[in-house]
Amino acid sequence: MMRRSPFLPLICIAGFVFLYAPIVSLVVFSFNESKLVTVWGGFSTKWYGALFRDPQILGAAWVSLQVAAIAATVAVILGTLAAYVLMRFGRFRSRALLTGMVTAPLVMPEVITGLSLLLLFVAMEQIFGWPAGRGMTTIIIAHTTFAMAYVAVVVQSRLTGMDQSVEEAAMDLGARPVRVFFDITLPIISPALVAGWLLAFTLSLDDLVVASFVTGPGASTLPMVIFSKVRMGVSPDINALATIIIAIVGLGVGLAMWVMVRGRNRDKAVQRTE
């Protein structure tokens, strides 16, 4: 094994400090007595109470989570298909078109993406009667479309990096392409799928502009509700919500780790007794 220099962990720690400095600050200010998120006014948990009495924020958070989970999942499926087709299918008729279409959403400014999809949905409703009105469905479609571009880039980079000989060997042995994909390619590119899903989920959860365009009455995502409160300065109950999200995810991650470590230790114990 290669010798590790202490340099790497140090940079890594510095990086995490950079990432978490604002998070620590927003967690701290969620316990602030004062309504101003920048001035410390004493310890209080009142914003947590205020949060649970605010159906608007909780409803929006729920909408956002559903949209992000669905959009990220669909985006991973479509983005992976697009990347796979581009990297493994050689030449086909719509190749150049697909290359362009899968990259372009990255560079389209949000305003234009939002507006153009809104115009499309309005026109589709007039012509086909679907989607009837706008709301969660239309936000999911919009998010899927731009998130799949990100997924495709990540998966493509993984496919470029991987050794193709294994796939070829399996094909030579007579495996169906579908089989090869699911049994060989997919496990190898799985880190890219996880990375892609996480990015897509994050993108969707944080999107404000596109969602504001393509939503309709009654379907507000969390960033929309937060942004509408910005005129007054961010109120600490949003900080409380962020703290809760971090706590829940942190707890979940911790639990999963614990289960994994325990499982591994038991395996080792079993191996030892055998």
Partner: peptide
């Protein structure tokens, strides 16, 4: 529902069938 600027409202109204 709430908005934060006249411009956002206007863009939605101009695109049509805002609901």
């Amino acid at each position: 529902d709430v908005y934060d600027s006249n411009e956002v409202l206007e863009a939605k109204l101009l695109a049509g069938s805002s609901g």
